[in-house]
Design a protein around this nucleic acid. Sequence first.
DNA 1: CGTAAGCTTGACAAAGTTCAACGATTGTGG
DNA 2: CCACAATCGTTGAACTTTGTCAAGCTTACG
Lengths: 264, 264
Amino acid sequence: MLAHTLTRPAVDPVFMRSLQSKIPDAVESFGSAAPCRGCRLRPTCVPTGLSDAEFDQFAALVTTHRRLKTGQAIYRAGDVFKGIYLVRSGFIKTVALLEDGREQVTGFYTAGDVLGIDAIGGVEHPTDAVALEGSDVCLIAYERLEESSHDVLALQRYLHRALSVEIVRKQAMMVLLGSMRADERVATFLLNLSERLMQRGFSASEFILRMSREEIGSFLGIKLETVSRVFSKLQKAGLLQVEARHVRIVDLEALRATMHHEVA
Amino acid sequence: MLAHTLTRPAVDPVFMRSLQSKIPDAVESFGSAAPCRGCRLRPTCVPTGLSDAEFDQFAALVTTHRRLKTGQAIYRAGDVFKGIYLVRSGFIKTVALLEDGREQVTGFYTAGDVLGIDAIGGVEHPTDAVALEGSDVCLIAYERLEESSHDVLALQRYLHRALSVEIVRKQAMMVLLGSMRADERVATFLLNLSERLMQRGFSASEFILRMSREEIGSFLGIKLETVSRVFSKLQKAGLLQVEARHVRIVDLEALRATMHHEVA
DNA sequence: CGTAAGCTTGACAAAGTTCAACGATTGTGG
DNA sequence: CCACAATCGTTGAACTTTGTCAAGCTTACG
């Protein structure tokens, strides 16, 4: 159903490395391989419960580190699958393309999230992944991961967990898209985002949206105007304060109630 | 977002085995372990490219074989995850439950499909799986699969493929639910079903729906009345012949066009 | 054979989309 | 550094699609 067959130019990171900054809209810089040991993100992005030896083995999987500017793509639908990406910092969206040209945001990813696993079973990426702000990602070559997860059970479990979490998330989105009204969708989205930001050490009640109204709408299956209207409505009702992309959750409980259809 | 915490009675297949037919609405019968060698489904349900030795290893994973009547559940949301299920025959739906009681069909599964993999990363199943007709399933204990996929790379790949295929499918459903109109959804659903049945050796143009209008609607994010109206409309337009659950695709190309928004 | 469940169809209501106008913010080149 | 263009966001009004409610019909099941 999705357009897997597009003929976008595939970006080969290994090839890119030699060209470095000569190509516009491409890779900005590569760090040295596997700098995970000193990485601040270690608690979020690396599988937990690894011994030091196992950790080194994991770190050795990271082949390239890539920095992206706003609007740059990590990969495009149709690109050959090389491996999965760990988001170190920033904000990324994934976009699915229909054969008839329609497209839809299928996910938002931030520090600690795994990207690109939907391609594991195939040859090409089925979606685009595009940076919504300056972001850092690490590439883990799938072949190496496959080998290593032979030896290290924790790695295998890590991968399986990541895959299954993704399924559960998409399934939850299916329910949202299939059975919720516009205000419930927006409330769910905000609470979800809030929780994920909190888990990463940010404020749960006040944050900056990294995506446009159109991207939110695309993700939630509604139009940007509807997103805007719901924001205004929730603000008037005193649950929220919204100013452009700055959001402050005022009444958390009421927002939770909105999510569950319980309209006051 | 999904209701993982329900307290439905967990069914333990090992325990059930000793009780056999004494429990109503439970397991009807167990076959002997691992009868895969003679199984007609071998080409559809077993990973391809296995050597004989590897095949035996795979067959050894199948711990129980279970026969279900219409309406019986393989597992319920909240049940402890034991392993994944291969559908040998029949038709199964999975249902996700929201905390507020709403529910939605999240997938239909038939011979050769893998069921329950969304639970791999967790402890409990996040969804119900219910038989829509008399069905057979095989349980593969996850612990054993985990061990074996250590040794047999083909098994590991098989599992990864199954997981990633599920993600891609759910993603495609997200696009459908997020951006398609009712008639596009129904057309997509029928074409999808047609293709899957064809892959299994059945007619692509004429088949019996195993699910009710309500279940179709739930899956597609529309009401049963809308499903019914779309069927009638497509029939009037000469693309389809529908009589209750008997469907005949008359104009395949026009149906494809409907799916892509190109209304004649 | 009767009752319940599933399916179809119509009329009306509600939610969200579309179109359009306008204000705000951002970024860029002079 | 300012001015202008482009993008983004808000809001209103008319319109479209789908949902809701209700009735009648068919099919399946006990």
